[in-house]
Design a protein around this nucleic acid. Structure first.
Lengths: 187, 187
DNA sequence: CAAATAAGTCAACATGACTGACGTAAGTTT
DNA sequence: AAACTTACGTCAGTCATGTTGACTTATTTG
């Protein structure tokens, strides 16, 4: 399987020293991403506990707050979860007055979602925690980390979703694309 | 609550244009980190399904594979889950021959963990998927993204854990602390 | 020997995902 | 107008993965 060459597609066995170093760097990234996300989600989790909410509530509240009038279907595409999973947390957020619904005027089947004042306060509070951690990390990473991090994270997103996310977020400067990956000369 | 000023510590209401832009950039990072991680974990999930494993198994297998002889207690600190949560997935990995245990020779209470050949194959396969995504993203982000991403992600980790993670990963170059901004043309 | 430590185990529970089936209102097509 | 499609909601059951709390066993250490 990974015995005989074919490093162009498999790369399971690093051949030379350079390849091994590159592999180590990439594995470091894999692990760092795990640790970074682990601690990144930990900040809001502490606060959410006091409200009886979990991460799922946070995600819903956040995207509704940042995109007033979001439809349920949009939320499903963003979160990539099922309608039934969303329903549970969304219902709680609505019942407890953090989110409201209105019917769309063009299409009255649509339920447009909005954060209430109470919901917005919580969403801002949670976002602030996460922004503060990111801000400090970007500072420590050095000048230019801001734009670089956004380009890197954006490129981590599955190709099919990038356009949608771009429309959702709006900000990030031009993608700094290499126009084509010069066919990476593998070995 | 957030009415009267105090932006120095709260920053809930952006005062000027510059502050608002900075806040938008940071919020973009928050959201991009969510999307990036969502898709980052999706790659291995597809494969794990075929083995009847989940993300929890992946994490355990990965860190055991990368750190042969890891103790159970170490794993608990890395994953930040409880002994009982770990026990369930670890037992499955051992029962199905992906991980083995040996008693430590210095301290025979310790159970040192090792990936079997079968376990190593799976771990490499999963790591490869994640590395490939990261490699492409770093390419798209432009030159220097590699080191920058590692510095940023490392700085996202809670301060108490950074030393431990540094020891675990080994690689990442000096932390590029803000105290000495310049002087960074190395490595 | 007594106490502390490393690990395993039993039981109960919460959260957040999933599938599948079905309902209902409102737009769209024929 | 009838038939179809779409957007959303809901009921019911399952699974994966996290939690607490209590208890055991083996081993090292004071």
């Amino acid at each position: 399987m990974q015995r005989a060459g074919d490093e162009t597609t498999k790369r399971l066995a690093p051949a030379n020293e350079k390849e091994r170093e590159q592999r180590d760097r990439l594995i470091a990234c894999v692990e760092l991403l795990f640790f970074a996300y682990r601690d990144f989600t930990n900040d809001p989790d502490q606060v959410l506990e006091q409200y009886g909410f979990g991460r799922a509530h946070h995600r819903v509240l956040h995207f509704v707050h940042r995109n007033p009038g979001l439809r349920v279907a949009d939320l499903l595409h963003i979160l990539k979860i099922t309608k039934q999973s969303l329903a549970r947390v969304l219902k709680q957020l609505i019942d407890e007055g953090f989110v409201t619904q209105r019917s769309g005027k063009a299409d009255r089947r649509e339920r447009l979602l909005f954060a209430t004042a109470k919901g917005s306060r919580l969403a801002d509070k949670l976002a602030d925690l996460q922004m503060r951690r990111i801000e400090l990390a970007l500072d420590k990473a050095g000048p230019g980390a801001d734009a670089m991090a956004r380009r890197f994270l954006f490129a981590m997103i599955g190709e099919q979703d990038r356009e949608r996310v771009e429309a959702l977020i709006g900000i990030h400067e031009p993608a700094h694309d290499k126009t084509e990956f010069e066919t990476r000369e593998s070995t």
